[in-house]
Design a protein around this nucleic acid. Structure first.
Lengths: 249, 249
DNA sequence: GGGATATTTCGTTCCCGGGCGAAACGTGCA
DNA sequence: TGCACGTTTCGCCCGGGAACGAAATATCCC
């Protein structure tokens, strides 16, 4: 069936801890810049650079330049499947399915996407912001890739989600300081959420809201994953402030 | 989803050329002894031994002792899927699908299974031998594993395919010298053919028939795979001697 | 028991590849 | 233009592991 496929070459690409972490970080199809991946892999930028170029040359990743950034993402769904296959075997077995299952659930429930909120929490927040007219627009255009400022901008990513004057007031009341938002970064962007297949809020505003929620103790980062844990006060706050009903568990 | 799976460890197992060849050789679920795998991988027996123990310790293979042999096989279907995933990506892409396709076709058409005939040729030969009463029996019992002398014997593998007196005469006429058959090996065994899902003939008789066909120039081993090429005289011979109709291409 | 064969262990050699920091590019922003 | 930042290239060090042959071990057959 597979005549003389050079499996070993692919294996060698995955065989390194740093590269493996990079692949896992990109596992959900996101596109991330080299610096972030270096951090994710826990190696120096120069080391990550070498890893990334090997992965690209090996056909596992693709790059797209965006100004002085280079965004990397999985070359295709087959690569994602490969990663799945590997992950399925990597612990002696998916024996710990109970723990792993709850972990997977947690990630889908609420997580960070780079520096903003994603998962069910992220999309419900997006809904709430639109419903309460904090944001308007976003009708129709759907970007299959990801349009966050921290993701690779695909053509036409600039769906017109706009902040309303009333929205600015609401968010300031919530504790967002618009004057101190990262200046060199678009305020409102969106991401396509892989677990929800809908948009969530990115951009400097998205990051600021996530930061504020952490500051308020509404959510807390998990130790070893991108999952977020929502506290009791978080459930209350989300309901009262944004009308978001999240069912825990 | 996959929290902290140690993907790199699995990758490292596949990252070596020798181990990759071993995995590919076992890719169809066969169980093979260490010596054969060493040959398949093109390394010394000692080297292969080290590889095999790493693969077993890593959970990709399982071993079963059978006398002084140790038969290795993939630890489970997930491992097979992993290999598939890898093979799907390994050449820059399945771009050379034309060549690869014909190669895959050739392997299904006719190949060696260790030392005897498999693929469509192997199963048609088995049919012919039963139809012409060279062999009798084999009714019902179906071994999901493989019961050849050169494969791992699973419980109940000894389905009663028996050689008939008339069959002995026929085969002697064909050029099989029963006196010189490997004495320490069962004469008639069978394998479950993975590409045809039916039995083909193994054992010392299966090996002798394969050898004789090669000797007669009916079939020729391919360079880089287990595929067999059937010659023009081979098609004629198979038809006249065994009534086997193989459509080339 | 003795000879043959399958497999593993041991000891040695050798090379690939990962890690880092410093410095060189290249691009964007002021 | 000049500074800042993201990324890559370069040079160096170092460890792991893959290879082989020879010898040890285990098992089978006669």
């Amino acid at each position: 069936m597979h005549g003389d496929a050079d499996i070993a070459a692919i294996g060698a690409l995955v065989a390194d801890r740093g590269r493996a972490r990079i692949l896992l970080a990109l596992g959900d199809g996101r596109a991330l810049p080299a610096t972030v991946l270096a951090d994710e892999a826990g190696v120096a930028a120069s080391t990550a650079s070498a890893h990334l170029s090997r992965l690209v040359k090996g056909g596992l990743l693709t790059v797209e330049r965006q100004g002085r950034h280079r965004y990397f993402r999985l070359a295709g769904p087959e690569v994602g499947e490969l990663i799945e296959s590997l992950a399925r075997i990597s612990p002696p077995a998916p024996v710990r399915s109970l723990k792993q299952g709850s972990k997977a659930h947690a990630v889908r429930f609420a997580r960070t996407c780079y520096d903003h909120l994603a998962g069910m929490l992220g999309t419900k927040l997006m809904d709430a912001l639109l419903e309460r007219n904090v944001l308007t627009g976003g009708d129709g255009v759907f970007d299959p890739g990801c349009g966050g400022a921290d993701r690779l901008a695909a053509p036409g990513f600039d769906v017109d989600y706009r902040l309303t004057p009333a929205g600015v007031r609401d968010l300031e009341a919530f504790g967002i300081d618009f004057d101190s938002l990262a200046p060199r970064r678009p305020v409102v962007r969106y991401c396509v959420d892989w677990s929800e297949q809908r948009h969530h809020l990115a951009g400097s505003l998205g990051a600021a809201i996530a930061e504020r929620m952490i500051e308020l103790g509404w959510v807390r980062r998990a130790e070893r994953s991108r999952a977020l844990h929502v506290s009791d006060s978080g459930y209350v706050g989300l309901r009262e402030q944004f009308g978001i009903e999240l069912s825990p568990r």
